[in-house]
């Protein structure tokens, strides 16, 4: 399964990559801003994306809509510090499969990813 990590922090990119390295993912890329994320998404059409919201050039919620217009079945997990219920609901309404608030542990990220993959398996 192809994974794309989008976060304007390189530390967070590395952490997320590390937390998910034992999963069944092939990391196709890590992007630090919304425009780079869209370029990588168009190129690789990943199955799963972890997507930050507050980023330079294009915010994550705009990316989310654009990604889903290119690949409606992409599983997108929003990973953001914006810890308020309105932002979470907005993301889910726009088609995100989950919302994980920063800070999080490796186990919490794994649970969210398992949840998303569970949704995929249920549907298949």
């Amino acid at each position: 399964m192809k994974l794309l990590i989008v976060d304007d922090s390189h530390i967070m990119q590395r952490a997320i990559g590390k937390y998910l390295e034992n999963d069944h993912f092939t990391l196709v890329g890590s992007a630090s801003d919304g425009e780079a994320a869209m370029q990588m998404f168009s190129q690789y059409l990943p199955d799963v994306v972890t997507l930050d919201i507050t980023m330079p050039k294009m915010d994550g919620l705009t990316c989310l809509e654009k990604m889903l217009s290119l690949k409606p079945d992409a599983k997108i997990l929003i990973v953001s510090a914006l810890k308020d219920s309105i932002t979470g609901l907005q993301a889910l309404k726009k088609g995100a499969k989950g919302f994980l608030a920063k800070p999080f542990t490796a186990a919490e990220l794994q649970n969210e990813i398992d949840e998303i993959l569970g949704q995929m398996n249920d549907r298949n």
Binding site: S80, A81, K102, P103
Partner: peptide, 12 residues
Amino acid sequence: EMTNTIAGNMRE
């Protein structure tokens, strides 16, 4: 990133 997380969490 630490500043971003603390400020983002302040939206709570």
